[in-house]
Design a binder for these strands. Sequence first.
RNA 1: GGGGUUUUAGCUCAGCUGGUUAGAGCGUUACGUUGACAUCGUAAAGGUCGGAGGUUCGAGUCCUCUAAACCCCACCA
Length: 898
Amino acid sequence: METKFNPQAIEKDIYEAWEKSGAFEAHREEGKKPFTIVMPPPNITGQLHMGHAMDCTLQDAAIRYHRMKGDPTLWLPGTDHAAIATEVKIVDKMREEGLTKESLGREKFLERAWAWKEQYGNRITMQQRRMGTSCDWSRERFTMDEGCSRAVREVFCRLYDKGLIYRGTRLVNWCPCCSTSISDAEVEYEEKDGNFWHLYYPVKETGEKLELATTRPETMLGDTAVAINPEDERYKHLHGCHVILPLLNKEIPIVLDEHADMTKGTGVVKITPAHDPNDYEVGQRHNLHIVRVFTYDGRMTGAKEKQENDELFASGKAAVNEPVVLDCGPYAGMTTMEARKAIVKDLEKGGYLGQIESLKHEVGTCYRCHTVVEPMVSRQWFVKMEPLARPAIEAVETGKTRFVPERFEKNYFNWMRNIRDWCISRQLWWGHRIPAWYCDDCGEITVARQDPDVCPKCGSRHLKQDEDVLDTWFSSALWPFSTLGWPDNTEDLKYFYPTTMLVTGYDIITFWVSRMIFSGIECMGETPFATVLIHGLVRDELGRKMSKSLGNGVDPLEIIDQYGADALRFSLLMGVSPGNDTRFSIDKVEAARNFANKIWNASRFVLMNTQEKVEINPDTLTMADKWILTRFEEAVKDISAHNEEGDFGLSATRIYDFAWSEFCDWYIEMAKPWLLGEDETAKRNVQAVLLYVLEGVLKLLHPFMPFLTEEVYHYLPGTEGFLMLKPWPEAGKWDFPEDLRKMEGIMEVIRSIRNLRAEMNVPAGRRTRLMFLPKEGWADTLNHAGLYFARLAGASQSSLIEKAADVTEKTVTTVTGAGTVYIPLGDLVDIEKELARLNKELENLTKEISRIEGKLNNPGFVAKAPEALVAGEREKLQTNQHKLEALKTRIEELKETR
RNA sequence: GGGGUUUUAGCUCAGCUGGUUAGAGCGUUACGUUGACAUCGUAAAGGUCGGAGGUUCGAGUCCUCUAAACCCCACCA
């Protein structure tokens, strides 16, 4: 073994060996409860980032832990086609070549998209392999593969047949840049500077000027009413009147509606049903015309759009509330921002413009391209949410699905209880095409599992499939069961559904988690997972979100190349608590790398001293052996418990502390004298314990640092096969509380001596004699610890004395729970300094004693605190009183000698 | 407007159902290469746990109020 752990040299080989051997593959074992995770499928848009790395690490830790525990485990991987995100990327790339979607045509475009999927999908799975991901690649899926597509179509048809999917003309969020509708969840709000333009609309009947305010004057061409509150005293006289819409000179009604808030502005609102969600609803209530003035790519409509629209109406195929399109005349073809300027200017000219206030307001933007979204009335497909949301809410209320940490339930409920119908159609080409056909002859809509040849109503062959595709989340919503073979009732589906745990970030609870829950209940009759383990975001060193635009993203692969996958994984777990964001820093990675190296070298040490497998002989164990075995089992219990809870941050910290501080810094150091000594029994003892605990440490650490532990395991004598398939350590074999107590007493003595030596500036190389005046019950233990004092406390010789008076030389002293330690230091001892030091110790001790006494003299404490606690305090008091006595005696002695 | 998170050592963060003198890593200081490891060891300095009340024998931990930072949802014509 090399003196340094070199991850680059081993990771690739180990991963290939694992994968080739089939170690990742899931096996159904009837009668045993499986542990199942479906991996959140990364988008095929690019490459993995730190968020994926964390997601992946958490899942792999859970999977490896359960695999070692003997649960049949399935971790099902895959990728997501990410309709809009991928399409945007492909179009961008085409633009560089001077191509457009339209010039290429749908078919050619899709060819490109599949090629893209091939390239980037593979790149992602390669990256996942580098992370050490132990998922079952034989079951890898893609949201647009044949099976998933079949599931999508099946769900679409079922919901359609039940009336839960419908086509309707509604106001939707429209991204003019991506040129598609997007769902409510895909709108992000950003604060932007804007203005409040006050406008005057003349009242036809009275001639007065009605003042109102708007943030979007360019929509005024589409106004089909103004609203006032029915209760508003200021405008009672206007009930039933009309206003003349400036610029267009068009008469529109004044309607009475609650939406008009008397306390805001003038209490008058202009109503643009085609381009504002609230106005749309007002329009529905009052049966207003809907006039569309924007094109789908964000410009003002003109003669061309109007003509198309007129033709639609003429053909009789217009929807019930199909909007009318306005030819905006001089504004036609302008972008909305250009039109805004022009219209404001013209309003001013006409004397219709009042004051302009500036304000900040939240503006909806597209989550993909951050273009301001335009609410638009258009014909889309929707999922009726209310009936689906109800059981999904109940599933979480009743605990069938549990969020960890629990607080994220509130997010979920908040979203689900205020849910609106889900717009699922997208005006894109990359995705699952909507399985609906329109008959050119009779207008019948056919939704079918199999592509129809003829119209089932009129028998016509002139069928056209809907041009749109489905929202990418429609297929991801089915992921927990579509990937297991649904709609067929496969063996995998029967055995692994519902899955055990879903691991994901809090940012996609609404997008994804909620939709999987209602889809699972709807299609499978059962919630798709028992636990949702939520983690936070990985931020940069300054706490900022990692993003392309900031250029502060860190590529996981670069970190792996430099420090190894284990270091990266461990750094993403250490000190992380569930649901909270974490900052990525190279310092943490280095700390993790150092830890890996520490384990490597500890293993190297054990192996240099142990050539063959040695079994533990319980009869010959020393105090130190029993101590480490007991502490090991405590670590096993704690780590197992944290793993069960999905609290891997605590597990990682615990194994770090146990391995480094207790095993390396203490036990290995205490083992050295025995290994170098003559006593063969003692030597074998220590070898056995070293091997045993090391193997245990490797197992406990394996879920977090799989490569290192697997590699080292192979060097251990008497091992064969993969560590990843070995059983998880069990506690319950070793428990020596008495030796634990003694050992800790000795450790305190050693620490005190080291402390004293440092304080007295004793050169590290200078060995000194030690004399102990033991406290009752400790003589034997101290006597047997000579080797440890020699090794760990710089003792040349240690001996017991019976009374303080036996000390005849100049010494410094430290008082411990096990007794008083005298260190003859000759010339190094300055009596005055020593007295000052001891007096300070005395002071501290006195304070501590009075604190405990205060506690014990409190009748409430003695009466109400648990007995064990009170007893503990009493014992502590006693120990400290002993120390105090010893200290006082020592001070007196010193005073005499001066 | 509704909801949530965070606030603990110079920095990054742990601290489970309230119970030793509040911990770790990094950084700082001093000493140290004793054959596993300088990607190391030993020791030290550093915190009235954002503030104010309260509950309790006992509060970093529970409750109320409050301050600051951040996030989610809804809305702003």
